[in-house]
Design a binder for these strands. Structure first.
Lengths: 239, 239
DNA sequence: CGAAGCATTGAAGTGCGTCAACAATCGTGG
DNA sequence: CCACGATTGTTGACGCACTTCAATGCTTCG
């Protein structure tokens, strides 16, 4: 059931039948991961990459003094650590933010299929560059957006990304993060994250309860966030 | 004279004579770029990538409301926009922060050499993933470090990166950014960036004048920044 | 030599952090 | 099914890191 991953890819690039089959065959194992597990520890030598089939994961970096920043969120269809194929050791942890189903893809198989299909090498290279584009937008958020605008922006982004893989319906989508985890994404304290959520609710922009996000006023939320989805590269392209 | 680029690569991976020659042959043109030019505009269709031979460039994102965040700095040896090979259109501007010499590398030649040398595809894929690792560290800075620690961290990073390509000497290196540009990297106002520089000077950690940075107290600066260079991937590896 | 950008300083304001307490919810075992 | 401890969410009071606004001198360069 890696079709959710193919769905994400097909939104951006065309895939031939052989390429699709090569991707399917690259999976060595399908597993479950419980919530709050550390899937990859920073610095350890990697030999497989993790494709998310359902649930959420996060990349997190810690300061020696203890502060934690989540640098990226991953949802169904994403490779959470495809960059470990070239980096070998990661500079951050990867952890599950909910119960997940994952497909394990050994690096030697990625190597094989990218050598056999140079086009797939470019497709996956492109995917890691898309991840970097999202990180850039987060840097813009962290550096220049206010707390409320930053949070609004995250909700906009997550909704669109979930929608691409068919995990959003109407104005609602899953949102399994606790306020602590959300605050670690946004560079805020838990207390201020809480007050910011309440302000978004008070303005009638969102609802957030039971691990579920409802966008009440899409236009208002988009405007507050200064959200522009072009950094998500939603158009089909040649590679 | 693209040897500065090869120097950066060789720090991380071994290159065969054929691979080196292929890289040298991929350059179509060597040009000069003056300071403060917009080299790439966000959204425009790209057909070449820019290898920096000397000088500094930056990737910058703007909010519709005008605030600007610099998401990455590039120095001699870096590809400033190698990711445009797969992304086609960038989500940010690329601009020169000083007079620069650049090597222009057409995308079709990158395609050719990465198909002929799959190992080079992995090498350059690795390089864009290294860029992303630096961006992650910046996100950690923006989200969790204080202004002074963030600035100290930037100085540590820049010094090490310049040192790798032989552009640092003793405790000094070039630093052509104005305080405005520096503040845009750090998500600070110019006024506060100024006060922060003065505090670093007052503590005897750095000197900064005449587009030149002197690190007076390396240990002190590193400790203040909580700087750990592992995210710069300075070790040699297989690809 | 004048204009424009850059660096610096001061005073005052505010967005977000810190500390501390408590309520609500969840998960687990008895 | 209830008891419980632990986690999560919420609120208030207060403090501070950083911003804002405004002015002034200093470079740089045409």
């Amino acid at each position: 059931m890696i079709s959710v991953h193919l769905k994400k890819l097909r939104k951006r690039v065309a895939l031939s039948a052989e390429e699709e089959q090569a991707i399917r065959d690259s999976v060595s194992e399908i597993r479950k991961v419980e919530s709050d597990e550390v899937v990859v520890r920073a610095g350890e030598r990697m030999h497989v990459s993790t494709m998310l089939l359902s649930g959420w994961m996060a990349r997190a970096k810690d300061l020696p003094s203890g502060e934690r920043q989540v640098t990226q969120l991953h949802i169904a269809g994403d490779f959470a650590d495809l960059h470990s194929f070239t980096l070998k050791c990661l500079d951050h942890d990867v952890m599950s933010m909910s119960d997940c189903r994952i497909a394990v893809v050994p690096h030697d198989r990625i190597r094989t299929i990218t050598e056999k299909f140079p086009r797939l090498a470019r497709v996956y290279w492109f995917m890691t560059n898309m991840d970097a584009a999202i990180q850039r937008e987060w840097a813009l958020s962290l550096g220049q957006r206010s707390a409320i605008s930053r949070m609004a922006h995250l909700f906009c982004e997550i909704y669109v990304r979930l929608d691409v893989v068919g995990h959003a319906s109407g104005d609602r989508c899953e949102f399994p993060l606790t306020q602590r985890e959300l605050s670690e994404c946004l560079g805020l304290t838990v207390v201020h994250a809480n007050r910011t959520i309440q302000e978004l609710r008070r303005r009638g922009l969102i609802e957030l309860e039971n691990r579920s996000l409802t966008i009440r006023d899409r236009a208002g939320l988009t405007a507050l966030a200064q959200f522009d989805d072009s950094y998500l590269y939603l158009d089909r392209r040649e590679v």
